[in-house]
Amino acid sequence: MSGSRRATAEGMTLIELTVALVLASMLMVVLLRVTNLVVSETVQVRRNSFDRLAAERLADQLRFDFENARGVGLQTNTIILAGFVGPNHVASRVHYEVQSRGAFRVLVRSVENESRVCWVGCGDLQFEPLGEFSVETGDAATGGLMPLPDRFRVQLADSSGRLMIREVIRHHAN
């Protein structure tokens, strides 16, 4: 009999085993939640890093186009620039247009016969004059569009409303 008492004293009772399993499963749930949080934060950091790089490239392109333009046309979801905005500073027109493509809204840049998507998940593209702005149609130098003001702001927000680009451009005198 003393042998069977030793075996019982050295082993775990059913209650102790159940408590240990419950504690282990609670620990696993906590670890899975922490792991999920770390993974989602890592994905968000990578997305923000990629967005920042893409936004900087697009901001450079927008700045180049607006600084070399002489005239601007504003339509719903579209900005048209005329001037020396083409390849090799040749006089031409550039269209920036927010379009719906499937489930996404995209910003498309078109020059002559070439179009490319500049931003996927575009929410809004805005042009805001900060200086004097003539709404009268310009001359041949402006491509028949309104002359650009001396200062203006260009903003691009993504589909969640996050401001990706906010550039104040000081346009050189015509």
Rank of each mutant, 00 (worst) to 15 (best):
S2D: 14
S4H: 11
S4L: 15
S4E: 14
R5P: 00
R5H: 09
G11L: 07
G11R: 04
G11W: 00
M12H: 08
T13E: 07
T13P: 08
L14I: 10
E16F: 00
V19K: 07
V19E: 14
A20F: 11
L21K: 03
V22T: 14
V22P: 11
L23H: 03
S25Y: 05
S25A: 02
M26I: 14
L27P: 00
M28R: 01
V29L: 15
T35F: 05
S40L: 11
E41V: 06
T42A: 15
T42C: 11
V43F: 10
V45Q: 09
R46E: 09
N48T: 05
N48S: 07
S49N: 10
R52F: 13
L53D: 13
R57V: 02
Q61H: 14
R63T: 15
R63I: 08
F66P: 03
R70C: 04
G71I: 09
V72E: 09
G73E: 12
L74S: 09
L74D: 13
I79G: 00
I80L: 15
L81W: 13
A82S: 14
G83P: 00
V85I: 08
N88K: 08
H89P: 00
V90S: 06
A91N: 07
V94L: 09
Y96W: 14
Y96A: 00
Y96I: 01
E97W: 01
E97H: 02
E97V: 01
S100I: 06
G102A: 02
G102N: 08
G102V: 07
A103H: 05
F104C: 04
L107W: 02
E112H: 03
N113V: 06
E114Q: 13
R116A: 11
W119L: 13
W119E: 00
V120Y: 03
L125H: 12
E128G: 04
E128I: 08
P129N: 10
L130I: 03
E132P: 12
F133K: 07
S134D: 13
S134V: 03
G138W: 05
A140M: 08
G143M: 06
M146G: 02
L148P: 01
R151D: 10
R151F: 06
R153M: 08
V154K: 01
Q155A: 06
L156P: 08
L156T: 10
L156S: 12
S160Q: 12
G161M: 11
L163W: 07
L163D: 12
M164W: 05
M164N: 03
M164S: 07
I165N: 03
R166Y: 01
E167W: 04
H171N: 15
H171F: 04
A173G: 09
